[in-house]
Design a binder for these strands. Sequence first.
DNA 1: ATTTCTCGTGAATCGGTTA
DNA 2: TTAACCGATTCACGAGAAA
Lengths: 372, 372
Amino acid sequence: MATKTKTTEAATLPLNQILAGDCIEVMRSLPASSVDLIFADPPYNLQLRGDLHRPDNSRVDAVDDHWDQFSSFASYDQFTREWLAAARRLLKPNGAIWVIGSYHNIFRVGAALQDQGFWILNDVVWRKSNPMPNFKGKRLTNAHETLIWASKQEASKYTFNYEALKALNEGVQMRSDWVIPICTGHERLKDEHGDKAHPTQKPEALLHRVMVATTNPGDVVLDPFFGTGTTGAVAKMLGRDFIGIEREESYRKVAAERLARVRRFDASALEVSGSKRAEPRVPFGQLVERGMLRPGEELYSMNQRHKAKVRADGTLIGHEVKGSIHQVGAALEGAPSCNGWTYWCYKREGKMIPIDILRQQIRAEMEDPRPN
Amino acid sequence: MATKTKTTEAATLPLNQILAGDCIEVMRSLPASSVDLIFADPPYNLQLRGDLHRPDNSRVDAVDDHWDQFSSFASYDQFTREWLAAARRLLKPNGAIWVIGSYHNIFRVGAALQDQGFWILNDVVWRKSNPMPNFKGKRLTNAHETLIWASKQEASKYTFNYEALKALNEGVQMRSDWVIPICTGHERLKDEHGDKAHPTQKPEALLHRVMVATTNPGDVVLDPFFGTGTTGAVAKMLGRDFIGIEREESYRKVAAERLARVRRFDASALEVSGSKRAEPRVPFGQLVERGMLRPGEELYSMNQRHKAKVRADGTLIGHEVKGSIHQVGAALEGAPSCNGWTYWCYKREGKMIPIDILRQQIRAEMEDPRPN
DNA sequence: ATTTCTCGTGAATCGGTTA
DNA sequence: TTAACCGATTCACGAGAAA
């Protein structure tokens, strides 16, 4: 895709280029109302303290880059307001913006969007299929990031390709939670030492879905925090024009090389990736949480020889053993292993009912809406 | 569960009751630092079109011009700051809060939490297995809501039952995205006309997970927007004390009737899988004192690469290092730290046995003390 | 060539107690 | 208040080696 320019209101728009410099200044220099979509992945302001080690004592390579450091919430808020104002000026009246973030920054970004007159259309959860665990066991695994999709103003007639997304989702409405793996393997760009070229490279699948959903071929997509250029790469593949802004020379270099390698799909090639999934795992604890079984209720083994009591966390307590439905079943039978789902029954009106019936109910509920 | 009171700092805490009135005023009348957990489901500020009422019930005239939109956000923010400040005062130093919301309000709530010194621990996505579809096909199906879990301050030693949640999730770490159905069927409370008693009744499964995760039996849980009392119902089932605050008489009535029907689970079912951290500490020197290991005996690292000699005072001496089992292990591995209990083995009849086995023997004796 | 195993790693606000 | 010290803690994948 050749570099080109577009003339709008007597000003010139540089297309399919990576512009060097601070994104606020660069955006202020571009012509107003000229861009269809903005995708922004701003610094998250992580505020990390010391080192973190995995249980095997290896050190986690954390985001400690200077561009993620802010002295206070107030300074982060000011930065956010300034780049959002500059971005909003560039949007066409029917334009829209996506911003991605984590709990460290997304609440401040979302509030600033609303304050500036953007109109939130959806918040979208990127559910990572392979997140980094919480090594110390002190919190929940941080398994998602949040995207906000907002139009320039309430009255905007924004682009939303409803049918395309429905097709992407096996024929049912696309939901606000998207399951997508983090960026690894060949897609993850490496520097000359073989280390990751950028600490927070986003997966192309995420940008693919964003652009299929909210742009049309030929639209202009601007990314003020271009990084290694995932937005540009996907825009080029999908026949959209892009404008990238990036302050760091090293990232611009990697991105330019990447873009040179990207091939545009031919127009007919908007394929739908059909991922086959195994049957979803249902934790036994869900039966308790959902009130299908009560804490304190007794379960009976299929052969009626043993019983055990359900606890609030989804473990069982039997005769001198406690643990999962599988562990307790195995212990009581003196067997090396046991499938608790087919081993245990509960009683209703004097009848013994296998707990697997309840699992099937939950699976039926889960299948109804597709997970991605 | 009988109504009761608890005396704290010469003030009285009304437990297992629904207090009538505006939650900000009521919270200001309660004693400071007296509550373990707050669960809050504040108004979502949904109606930004048509008639708009501020949280104080005054009506906003027009919402289509920008200034007034801003003013409605400003009044929602003020309301948020006031109830959060009153709530924070009630929390014990190690207390925590959960707030649930949608994209209409959650960004403002999250920013206010951070501004007031709460420390965000996770944002959690409640992923609805059966959300309402987007009828007009103009946006994504709004299939989730967001919860924020935050401690009173950064230094708080908050409650997190890691092992219990892991058990609830089939033995792997609980993630930040929870699949739970919306509240329907028998659980959904109806009024005398058979209509839903409350527009946004939350499922008990959601509160079950929140309370198993972040409270212990006997803790005090406050809900300033009590509604139909899901928080109280689950607290009672799980052996926690609650304080509900609700302004609307009709909701208080429905909630009171509901609570009267709730049965508490028996105590043994409420006990939850614990972590090793809570187990009593055993000094390594005791193994030597008791003759389980002899001074001069050699220990071997799990990977067989290192060995060290036991000294009479319970320290080890290895290759140019001496100190505790942890210090020597860390030094020999070049690691920042090391759990000596799982690192070192001793030999009996040619077999390698982890020293942690001996610690478990001592702990078993401590639980079941025998006269000697 | 195929399967199995080992190792590395990802936007992370990741201790508690005692002296 | 600070410092020292104990000692608990990980999931999903991809790449490359080993069998």
